[in-house]
């Protein structure tokens, strides 16, 4: 499991009062090690349809200036939805799954 290393858990006097959390703080939590397979991008087959991005449950398709630029392997859980949804170019998918080397 991707338990991140918290140097020291805070005591009750140091924690913010109540069940309050900073927004987006989960970004530091790694779920990438859940994967048994990883998606690999093949740019030459990519038509930039962004279907992989819109269907990713883990916000793990990186996009810059509205263009797909690769995967966020820190969070990608390797579900493979991006591969299924990828229309590719002339029948060749722009994403393939490869076994994780452990």
């Amino acid at each position: 499991m991707g338990e991140i290393k918290v140097a020291r858990k805070k005591g009750w006097k140091e924690l913010p009062e109540g069940d309050y959390l900073e927004p987006g703080s989960a970004a530091v939590f790694e779920t990438g090690d859940w994967r048994s397979e990883r998606p690999v991008w093949i740019p030459e087959n990519c038509i930039q349809c962004l279907f992989c991005w819109v269907y990713c449950p883990d916000s793990s398709v990186k996009v810059k200036d509205s263009l797909m630029t690769g995967f966020d392997y820190k969070h990608c859980k390797g579900c493979g939805i991006c591969v299924t949804e990828c229309p590719g170019k002339k029948g060749n998918k722009a994403i393939k799954m490869e076994a994780e080397k452990k």
């Binding site: 989960a26 530091v28 449950p57 916000s59 509205s66």
Partner: peptide, 28 residues
């Protein structure tokens, strides 16, 4: 989609939904 991709992502990665969870897709 091109326009949507310019918007801020309001659900970050690092959540603990199952791999391939549909709820994550809907929420996003």
């Amino acid at each position: 989609l091109k326009e949507l991709a310019t918007r801020p992502e309001l659900l970050s990665g690092g959540h603990r939904l199952c791999a391939g969870c549909g709820a994550g897709i809907i929420a996003r």
